[in-house]
Write a protein that binds this DNA or RNA. Structure first.
Length: 289
DNA sequence: ACAGGATCCTGGGGGC
DNA sequence: TGCCCCCAGGATCCTG
């Protein structure tokens, strides 16, 4: 499931493989991808050069030499690959661009939750970002913004961390991991966090993402980087996918629940602050605060 | 404002 | 072996 570390890894892999390369032809267009925009792909992409590859949240941004932008969201199972022609898997390919020196740019997506968008000029792109209303990048969060937004809501922490308008980049895996590192219960309400806990949560998010980027992200099932290499962070996960296994910190079994419609993994002993039914209080160990 | 459910989608795994 | 059902979740929409 591509989250920020996986998307960042793809971008870093693609950059040297793609920058300066020319699109010779469009071999396959993304009709099967439900949310892909409709464009005369051959007309807008043929003979264009890739100027730069970057990322905003989980979106991958290809800037072309005509100020056009090709955006890709990997969704659940998306893979973006640049490989010599004839390499790699051939099923579930939704868009293929032939590049110079017989390389191919390929978007592969088994479950088709991905998204492909093209913007002909910076104005259209800016409009798209406005509509998306994305929050800040995790490593560039203003402390005051963070404190205000988290303290100002009664939503639970799991739902908050998945909300891309609050903060971009977290998905189900790293939301669970960050909450475990911060020792905060996923059901705790934003408004019930102390300033110290709030700051600790932001640091935990940064630390979890930093470590995961270092390990090229987590390959649970389908994810691979831009050159086809798998990630390594799945070996370091503390709670995600470890239901009933002992917590590495305290030895108690990891619990699973469903929050914000997503499976949520946590250690009930290490992660305190589960809210009681009465509003405005939460349990901390055996005490009510 | 918020929670929860449905929707899109396919492959893997469990049960029979 | 084959069949059925459930589960996984990023984003979005709808309802209560």
């Amino acid at each position: 499931m591509p989250e920020l570390p996986e998307v960042e890894t793809v971008v870093r892999d693609l950059r040297p493989l793609l920058c300066g390369r020319t699109i010779l032809s469009v071999i396959k267009t993304p009709e099967a991808i439900r949310r892909a925009g409709k464009h005369p792909w051959e007309a807008v992409l043929k003979n264009r050069h890739f100027e730069s590859i970057s990322r905003r949240g989980k979106w991958i941004i290809h800037q072309l030499d005509n100020k056009g932008h090709l955006l890709i969201h990997l969704g659940m199972t998306g893979q973006l690959l640049v490989q010599p022609k004839g390499h790699g898997l051939t099923d579930h390919l939704h868009m293929i661009l032939a590049l110079d020196q017989t390389f191919e740019w390929k978007f592969r997506d088994i479950r088709r939750f991905g998204n492909i968008q093209y913007f002909a000029n910076p104005t259209d792109l800016a409009l798209f970002w406005t509509k998306q209303n994305l929050g800040p990048e995790p490593f560039m969060v203003d402390r005051h913004y963070w404190a205000t937004r988290v303290k100002g809501t009664s939503r639970n922490l799991k739902a908050l961390l998945l909300d891309q308008t609050l903060l971009v980049g977290l998905g189900n895996i790293y939301a669970d991991e960050a909450l475990h590192l911060a020792k905060l219960h996923p059901e705790m309400r934003g408004q019930n966090l102390t300033s110290k806990q709030n700051e600790c949560l932001l640091r935990a998010i940064e630390n979890v993402l930093t470590e995961s980027i270092k390990n090229r992200g987590s390959t649970i099932r389908d994810y691979v980087g831009g050159s086809g290499l798998k990630g390594g962070q799945q070996l370091n996960l503390q709670v995600y996918g470890r239901t009933d296994n002992p917590c590495f910190t305290c030895g108690n079994p990891i619990k699973r629940t469903v929050l914000a419609g997503r499976s949520t993994h946590f250690c009930p002993k290490c992660q305190l602050g589960q809210p009681r039914k009465s509003i405005g209080s939460y349990t901390k160990g055996d005490r009510t605060v």
